[in-house]
C-alpha cells in the first residue's frame, strides 16, 4: 500500500466556554490515501471540527490532542505558524459552505485566484493571470476572462462556489477538505459542482475529505464514509455498502429522510440511544 496521506489517531478536540468544557471530538481515528472520504453527521457531531483540526484552524479556545496527527508523514502536532503557512493553501486547502463569506467582496474573483497562485509560487502577473484563467476553465466556467473581472456579488452561488474551488485548486494541493461545499446551492447546481470536484480529484490524484450532513449524497460521491455522532465515529462504511449499514444511528438517519419513491403516512423518527455516545 502507498504511503498514507493523512493519519489521525485518537483525535480529541475540546472547547472551553464561559461555564464549561465541551468535548466536540472524542477519539476519532482515520488513515487515508488519495481517496475520497466522506464525514457525515448532524450539527454538533464534530464533523467540521475534525476537518478544521486537520488544517490547524481550531479556534483559540479549542484544544487539540491526538496520539498521531500526520499529513504526508509530517507531524502536525505543535506545528508553528510558519509551518502551517507552508502547508495550508499550498498542500492542503479548504472549501467552505458559503462562497459569499469566503471570497473577498472588494476584489475581483480573478485577482483573488491569481493572488492565491502568486503567494504559493513565485510568478509574474501575467503567469498568475494565465493560471487563474486556466483554473476557472477547469471548473467549467464558460467565459473565464469575463468572470475573471467580476466581483463576488456579481456571480451566482454556483459560480461563486466553483470560483472558490478554482482558487483552492490553483495551488495544486494534495488534500482538499470540503466542508458542506454544496449545501447552499440548488440541487441541479449542486450536481454540477460535485461533478467538477469529482473529475478534478480523479485527474489530479488528490485526497478529498468531504464533510456533509447528507448521507445519501456523500455515499454516492465518496469511496468511504465515516458516520459521526456526538464527537465519535460510530461507523465506517464503504460507500457502496451504505444500505448494509449496521449501526442504528446510520440506519435511523437513512430512514427518516422523506423519499419520492416511498409514500409514508408518517416519517420515521430517529430514536436516540444514550449508549451511542459511549464506546460501541
Amino acid at each position: 500500500m502507498e504511503k498514507p496521506l493523512v493519519v489521525i489517531e485518537d483525535l480529541h478536540v475540546s472547547f472551553r466556554t464561559q461555564t464549561r468544557v465541551v468535548d466536540a471530538v472524542r477519539g476519532v481515528s482515520l488513515v487515508m490515501g488519495k481517496e475520497k472520504i466522506g464525514i457525515v453527521g448532524e450539527s454538533g457531531s464534530g464533523k467540521s471540527v475534525t476537518g478544521r483540526a486537520l488544517l490547524g484552524l481550531t479556534p483559540p479556545n479549542g484544544r487539540v490532542e491526538a496520539k498521531r496527527l500526520e499529513f504526508d508523514g509530517q507531524d502536525l502536532r505543535g506545528l508553528d505558524a510558519e509551518g502551517w503557512r507552508h502547508l495550508r493553501g499550498r498542500r492542503m486547502a479548504m472549501v467552505m459552505q458559503d462562497p459569499k463569506f469566503s471570497l473577498n467582496p472588494v476584489m475581483t474573483v480573478g485577482r483573488q485566484i491569481a493572488e492565491a497562485y502568486g503567494t504559493h509560487f513565485k510568478a509574474g502577473r501575467a503567469e498568475a493571470r494565465d493560471k487563474a484563467l486556466a483554473a476557472l476553465e477547469a471548473v467549467q466556467i464558460r467565459d473565464p476572462s469575463r468572470v475573471f473581472d467580476l466581483y463576488p456579488h456579481e456571480v451566482s452561488g454556483g459560480m461563486g462556489q466553483r470560483a472558490m474551488i478554482a482558487m483552492m485548486l490553483v495551488a495544486e494541493p494534495d488534500l482538499l477538505i470540503a466542508d458542506e461545499p454544496t449545501s447552499a446551492l440548488d440541487v441541479t447546481v449542486q450536481m454540477q459542482v460535485l461533478a467538477i470536484l469529482d473529475d478534478l480529484v480523479a485527474r489530479r490524484g488528490m485526497g478529498l475529505i468531504f464533510v456533509s450532513h447528507d448521507l445519501d449524497l456523500v455515499a454516492a460521491f465518496c469511496d468511504r464514509v465515516l458516520v459521526m455522532y456526538g464527537g465519535r465515529v460510530v461507523e465506517t462504511l464503504k460507500a457502496s455498502e451504505l444500505s448494509a449499514a449496521r449501526h442504528p444511528y446510520t440506519r435511523g438517519l437513512l430512514d427518516c429522510v422523506p423519499r419520492l419513491e416511498r409514500a409514508q403516512a408518517k416519517l420515521n423518527v430517529l430514536e436516540r440511544d444514550p449508549s451511542w455516545l459511549e464506546g460501541a
Binding site: Q140, I141, R142, D143, V147, S156, G158, M159, V187, T188, V189, M191, Q192, L194, A195, D198, D216, L217, A219, A220, F221, L260
Partner: peptide, 16 residues
C-alpha cells in the same frame, strides 16, 4: 433529488 449521479450531472446544461 435522487442523489449524485455522475452521468446525470453531464446532462444538465450549465447555468452561467
Amino acid at each position: 433529488s435522487r442523489g449524485y449521479d455522475r452521468k446525470l450531472a453531464e446532462s444538465f446544461k450549465t447555468l452561467d
